[in-house]
């Protein structure tokens, strides 16, 4: 056999083996699997046909930038879409991300998660660049009328932190690598740009599949 033919056959063999290996490992990995977590932070109609799960970090500027796009979708599909927030704090680059998530989780216990969520994103630039974000977080709690004692108790409760870490672990399992990562009925979208270009299209497709449009 001449050398060229040997090379061609060997190269083809290696490539085919790699393709088979990749597809055999990937097969069956359903990253979009939807699982309801305890204390889910949701808004929108219960049992809505379109379920949107947003993995987000309060200190991430890209998450803040994606909010208006998500808001547009929420306004357009207010009757058919439910949004769930899941914590995915990136602790290494974002110093206050975990603390912000903890305060938000405690606000959720008093039924004011979304108000606190909006406030954190609104003032993101302020608290992100301060050495004492905790006093700002406490001030937001006060301004939103949250019970100070309950907040303190919640912040000291190790279960609060564990809940946040569990949510993040669910994200890791679902192959979330950066924030914001959004699942629309299990279909993964990463970042505001993809949400803007594909979000509406996916929602409409999902509604069409379910015969809701």
């Amino acid at each position: 056999m001449n050398i060229r033919r040997r090379y061609f056959l060997t190269g083809s063999g290696i490539i085919v083996a790699l393709v088979l290996l990749v597809f055999s490992v990937r097969f069956g990995r359903d990253v979009g699997a939807f699982s309801n977590l305890e204390n889910a932070k949701v808004k929108g109609p219960h049992g809505a046909p379109v379920q949107v799960v947003v993995y987000s970090d309060f200190q991430c500027p890209a998450c803040k930038n994606a909010l208006p796009v998500l808001q547009e979708l929420e306004n357009e599909f207010s009757e058919t879409m439910q949004i769930e927030f899941r914590h995915y704090p990136l602790e290494r680059p974002h110093r206050w991300a975990m603390t912000a998530a903890t305060f938000a989780e405690c606000a959720a216990e008093q039924g004011k998660f979304w108000e606190y969520h909006d406030r954190l994103y609104l003032d993101q630039a302020t608290w992100s660049n301060t050495d004492d974000a905790i006093s700002l977080f406490a001030r937001y709690s006060h301004e939103l009328g949250l019970d100070k004692e309950k907040i303190q108790k919640c912040l000291e409760n190790p279960e609060t932190l564990q809940r946040i870490r569990r949510e993040r672990s669910t994200g890791v399992w679902q192959k979330v690598e950066s924030t914001p990562t959004i699942f629309i009925n299990g279909q993964l979208i990463v970042g505001g740009l993809q949400l803007k270009t594909k979000g509406r299209e996916i929602v409409l497709e999902e509604l069409k599949k379910l015969g809701k449009v």
């Binding site: 990749v22 990937r26 192959k175 990562t181 993964l188 740009l193 993809q194």
Partner: peptide, 17 residues
């Protein structure tokens, strides 16, 4: 290459973006 292939395509698309 393996890590990227095991991850959903939108993740690497976001990196490129």
């Amino acid at each position: 290459g393996w890590e990227k292939l095991m991850s959903p395509l939108p993740n690497f698309m976001a990196v490129l973006e």
